[in-house]
Design a protein around this nucleic acid. Structure first.
Length: 731
DNA sequence: TCCCACTTTCTTTTT
DNA sequence: GAAAGTGGGA
């Protein structure tokens, strides 16, 4: 083993060394952006292990993404290779899911419980709303779901929630919430929030279990502590209760998840909870140039609720930060692409050096189009997620039911997919029967023939469905997960269903299902012969956007500002700096929300190592409107000494007023290289669409500013499109 | 029971 | 401009 002190002295600055070596008792590390906090955390773990203070299985290290956890594990392994196995390094959600697999039985859960994502939660809420037949008026299931989730994150259980009702929405939410919790238990399922709350309930109800884990974990380390919520805060307090060896790392300026229940007070008031804690400040930034730091600081200092601090760096001044004003989102995209292309051609950069950040996922589309047009490779983080695609969720639902037959949400999802003649009314009868007889829906499937109301045809379909499920349920112990899935797909004909349909959509779906199988095979390979389907399902449920991001691929990265936290890039673009977009309109009237937007800007700016671009547009299309924009207040807060301000030629012309913008081709701004003649469509004309290819116009309907077109595509068949939304080229 | 065509909503960020 | 939801007809 390497001498402990050696690597600590050679790789760390003085303050970092202190933070690493102060091992016992509560420790608060305030780590500014780019100050090497991951390094400190990993060295700390390595130091604890190497000095013999604890065994690996006595260490608990929590992060917010699997990617961060994997990175931490890898880096610890490099420092102390032989001591890694058994450590509890992972996300809050995955570690507690693991704990609940062991202990959930005490709370009435089976160890094979399903984990519900937002989609499943919504389905359940809708189910309950129908069941309770509540007067919902204009309250959407989504609103109710958000209320429930917020309550859970604040650790308010149904009983307490019901006691504090102030309006009709809360009244309905309270009823749904009570039923929702009951249902989850019945379905043997937990939602994301449960993974944080249930351990607390468990510890409170079973002090011996609490003591077991308090004894087990000698050292607890928490990353991104500024983003913990009430539930996370409490569970940490319980776990650290005995030994008090808890080390939290965070930066109040980078707290950006308030809307999800995160509470900055957790980090601001850590010293109140642990009065004798050791406190360290990491303020030397190793990432950004002086100019970038100065700009970031000029904005964040406008926040009132923050620890005053200022990062410093030994890096050079560097380039000025570029502030670019463009006419609209299309020009913004073109500007970004041109800058990337220019720097790339000068051979100073590779594509993976660039990140384009935006406030909302919807902004990615235009930028993608522009990148594609220039043939620049890009990766997009987030957006439509792989595991949320319909076809993937369908297959996963099958697997979930195999593991957990009580999971009615998944069961109902697949009961008539692929079609087997089991319609809505049959399902209702089944459920009623199950309820009357007080048996599970799954059990009702088994004895469907004894239900007189269900016609023979539907009954036969149900029986074969049941036999199919049961067969694969028993195969689980004999075959590896990947083989079960492959065989199941074969027998149900799901893959064939998509393969036989020649539309692009179906082919993509078939492709996605194959990709899912690949993921399963990979999982089996990694986990060895012990690979269990339930573990795969859990892993999949708790995957984060950023986890799937391949940072070695030579491509420009597109993502939201939220997703960028913790990352760094030589060149960063922050786009859409307009009032109402960034900061978002809903935040403008709420001082706390506004400060969070400002922190988000700070997070974005401090991702940049060498060059930062800020862009804003005079007009930005939203739905069908194209309203004029006002520059973001964050732009006004920039310290101009570090800024080079430019505007495109088109943007320098007087602002376009709202009335002029009724999206006719004539009204588009003048770009040098773009032909802007009005599109004269005629029936029988040949046109080309970016995605659907070539086709012939069948029908034209002219609307106000829009033209509806029916087009027969050579490959895709008939489609209805609306110009100018659909990008059509006349051939 | 299922399919097609039409309408409505979506756009805040995510474990 | 897509996806999800709705409703009528076969």
């Amino acid at each position: 083993m390497k001498n402990t002190l050696d690597w600590i002295y050679s790789d760390l600055n003085e303050e970092q060394q202190k933070a690493v070596c102060e091992v016992d008792g509560p420790v608060l590390i305030l780590a500014g952006a780019g100050s090497g906090k991951t390094r400190v955390l990993t060295y700390r773990i390595a130091h604890i292990l190497a000095s013999g203070k604890a065994e690996p299985y006595q260490i608990l290290a929590m992060t917010f993404t699997n990617k961060a956890a994997a990175e931490m594990r890898e880096r610890v392994q490099k420092l102390v290779p032989e001591m890694i196995s058994g450590m509890w390094i992972g996300t809050f959600h995955s570690l507690f899911a693991r704990l609940l697999r062991y202990e959930g039985e005490k709370l009435g859960y089976d160890s094979n419980f399903s984990i519900y994502d937002v989609d499943d939660q919504l389905t359940l809420v809708k189910m309950i709303l129908e069941e309770l037949a509540l007067p919902v008026q204009n309250i959407t299931p989504k609103t109710i779901n958000q209320r429930i989730s917020a309550a859970k994150n604040d650790m308010i259980l149904p009983a307490e929630f019901a006691e504090n009702i102030n309006n009709p929405v809360e009244e309905i939410t309270a009823k749904v919430y009570t039923r929702y919790e009951k249902k989850l238990l019945e379905l043997n399922a937990m939602d994301f929030d449960d993974l944080l709350i249930k351990p607390i309930i468990l510890f409170e109800q079973f002090p011996d279990v609490k003591m077991h884990y308090q004894d087990k974990f000698h050292y607890i380390l928490v990353d991104e502590y500024q983003d913990t919520n009430r539930a996370q805060y409490n569970v940490l307090r319980l776990l650290a209760g005995k030994r008090r060896n808890i080390c939290v790392v965070g930066d109040d300026d980078q707290s950006i998840y308030r809307w999800r229940g995160a509470d900055v007070r957790n980090i601001l008031e850590f010293e109140l909870d642990y009065p004798k804690c050791h406190k360290f400040r990491l303020e030397q930034n190793y990432r950004s140039t002086k100019n970038i730091l100065a700009v970031a600081h000029s904005v964040i200092q406008n926040n009132i609720k923050r620890h005053s601090k200022k990062l410093w760096t030994e890096r050079p001044e560097g380039d000025s930060v570029t502030l670019m004003n463009v006419v609209d989102e299309r020009e913004e995209a073109r500007y970004i692409v041109n800058q990337i292309g220019g720097e790339f051609r000068k051979a100073e950069r590779r594509f993976y050096d660039f990140a384009v950040l935006y406030r909302t996922n919807a902004q990615s589309r235009v930028i993608e189009d522009a990148l594609r047009l220039d043939g620049i490779p890009y990766i997009i983080v987030g957006g439509v997620k792989f595991y949320e695609r319909k076809e993937v969720k369908d297959v996963l639902a099958y697997l979930k039911v195999l593991v957990n037959p009580a999971d009615v949400i998944s069961l109902k999802r697949i009961i008539n997919f692929p079609l087997r003649g089991i319609g809505e009314s049959t399902v209702v009868k089944l459920e009623k029967f199950a309820e009357d007889k007080r048996i599970s829906l799954y059990k009702a499937l088994e004895i469907v023939e004894t239900i007189p109301e269900i016609p023979a045809k539907a009954s036969a379909g149900i029986t074969s469905f049941y036999k199919l499920l049961n067969k694969y349920r028993s195969l689980r112990s004999e075959l590896p997960p990947a083989e079960i899935a492959t065989s199941l797909l074969e027998e149900t004909g799901i893959l064939k269903l998509y393969k036989d349909d020649n539309s692009v959509e179906s082919q993509t779906r078939a492709e996605n299902i194959r990709e899912l199988i690949v993921a399963l095979v990979e999982f089996s390979n990694n986990a060895g012969p012990e690979a269990r389907l339930e573990e795969f399902l859990q892993q999949v449920s708790l995957i984060t956007d950023i986890d799937t991001w391949d940072d070695r691929k030579n491509a420009v990265t597109l993502m939201t500002l939220h997703a960028a936290k913790g990352l760094e890039f030589p060149v960063v673009f922050i786009t859409g700096l307009e009032e109402g977009l960034f900061p978002l309109s809903r935040s403008i009237d709420d001082p706390l929300a506004l400060e969070e937007e400002r922190r988000l800007f700070y997070v974005g700016a401090t991702r940049a190592k060498d060059k930062l671009y800020l862009t804003w547009a005079k007009n930005r299309r939203k739905y069908t409107e194209n309203p004029a924009q006002v520059k973001s207040r964050f732009i006004k807060e920039l310290d101009l000494r570090f800024i080079e301000s430019v505007a495109s030629r088109a943007a320098k012309t007087p602002p376009v007023t709202q009335t002029r913008i009724k999206y006719g081709a004539n009204d588009m701004p003048d770009y040098e290289n773009q032909s802007q003649e009005d599109q004269e469509f005629q029936i029988g004309m040949r046109v080309k669409h970016q995605v659907f290819g070539k086709g012939t116009i069948l029908k034209i309907e002219r609307g106000y500013g829009t033209i509806k077109l029916m087009i027969l595509f050579d490959r895709e068949g008939e489609k209805r499109l609306v110009y100018p939304y659909a990008k059509l080229e006349i051939l």
